[in-house]
Design a binder for these strands. Structure first.
Lengths: 244, 244
DNA sequence: CGCTAGGTTGAATCGGGTCAATGGGAGTGG
DNA sequence: CCACTCCCATTGACCCGATTCAACCTAGCG
């Protein structure tokens, strides 16, 4: 499986209405009728192998992408080659919203494992959302939620110490995984220490050390990328306490 | 002037079509016909005195606001009272996009000087943008631009040193001021060192010290909140160079 | 079986934070 | 008009958390 190297169009019809991610993805709250319309729009899927980019900075913007399976990171880079991971996306989450502003993508989206996305042609989405109020509203909510999420990351980057950042990151990850039916306490990281560090504004050594510290403190069990959360409330307490 | 303490509805009709900010604000790129429709929507203005909030976290979300005159900051805070300035908004910029996701605002918007905003009832904007493609598209672009901006801030917070952050901040400010017809080299800061620090993920003392350093290096002249940029390319060089 | 990418750990360094004292400007009230 | 006050800004000294540099380890893969 996942052995095909080119863009792959699913031979059979894909349908949001029968997708088990519909409660997390664009279709949230849509009526049956609206959903059928959306089905017509989201006609193709695309496979992206681990390490490949779904789109990169400067690419012309045509479509949004909904992650169906797999895991992505997005990263921006400045002229001088500085690099920043701006997010990690898992099933049901949308990629490509950055492209609307300029008709060009302003970040890279890289698959961290073999993944599949649903392709949502943007001009058609705009068209459809003129007709279907609920879809329009849902789409706006998703964009707004991204803005709110970004503000949360700014808070993290601007005011938290390393331990707090990593704890917040882990809690956020597990929460999203739990919403997708996975365990709240055991997880496998799909990204390297360096990628976590970039996202959290830390160096990879600091991330590694902090993992070790959490393990010593009995908060986690860490075996490479396998993490088991032993003391969820303890992590939570780390996050919300200016704790002096 | 600016002596009224309550919300003030302008007695005469306000009109985007005759607003000198139309090239920076929501109406960008709209045809004459679309503009007339927008005029009908944006019927009221509201004055906000220096220090007052336009909205705060938890307030029910009804409207977006376009800054007409004045200057705002937005800030989020975490449960434990940590605080983060997420942006500064000047004439022509939109406030309130965070509220769409939840029907509640998720940040505070505070006027840093006596200000006036145009009130854009959100449900009517959605309605109108179903009818007018250009307006819909422009609105989406503005939301997307906010996301892209936030990613830039993440890059700044995640990977830049204090000097680089402050230089980037000043260049961004002057660029926006210049687009509004102000000088590219002389500016008056509307915010305290502490607010700059919060935005940049630094302490106020660090901001102050960095201003002093820039002055010693001949990059700026700093007199309290009066800043004169003496060496724009020098600042630019600070920003784009991992310089080692 | 050896190579390589990723991860861990230690020691030294340093950038920015913390704490504390001082200075300056704008607004207020006598 | 001046004096008082408050808020903001500056500056110094010290400290600490995170980075840097380096060595070493481990797992996965060809």
């Amino acid at each position: 499986m996942n052995a095909n190297h080119a863009i792959k169009i699913e031979p059979f019809k894909v349908a949001c209405s029968s997708c088990n991610l519909r409660e997390l993805c664009l279709p949230v709250g849509l009526s049956k009728g609206d959903l059928d319309q959306l089905d017509a729009l989201v006609a193709t899927r695309r496979n992206v192998e681990r390490g490949d980019t779904l789109f990169r900075t400067g690419d012309s913007f045509q479509s949004l992408y909904a992650v169906r399976t797999g895991f992505f990171k997005t990263c921006v880079s400045s002229e001088d080659g500085r690099d920043q991971v701006t997010g990690f996306q898992m099933a049901g989450e949308l990629l490509g919203l950055d492209g609307i502003s300029n008709d060009r993508h302003s970040c890279d989206a890289v698959a961290l494992e073999d993944s599949q996305v649903c392709v949502i042609p943007y001009s058609q989405l705009e068209e459809l959302s003129r007709e279907f109020t609920d879809l329009q509203h849902q789409f706006h909510k998703i964009m707004s939620r991204e803005i709110v999420r970004d503000h949360g990351v700014m808070l993290l980057l601007g005011s938290m110490r390393a331990e707090e950042r990593l704890a917040a990151f882990l809690l956020n990850l597990t929460q999203r995984l739990q919403a997708r039916g996975f365990s709240a306490s055991a997880l496998v990281l799909r990204m390297t220490r360096e990628e976590i560090g970039s996202y959290l504004g830390l160096k990879l050594e600091t991330v590694s050390r902090t993992f070790s510290k959490f393990q010593e403190d009995g908060l986690l069990e860490v075996k490479q990328r396998q993490i088991r959360i032993m003391d969820q409330p303890g992590l939570q307490k780390l996050v919300n306490s200016t704790t002096c």
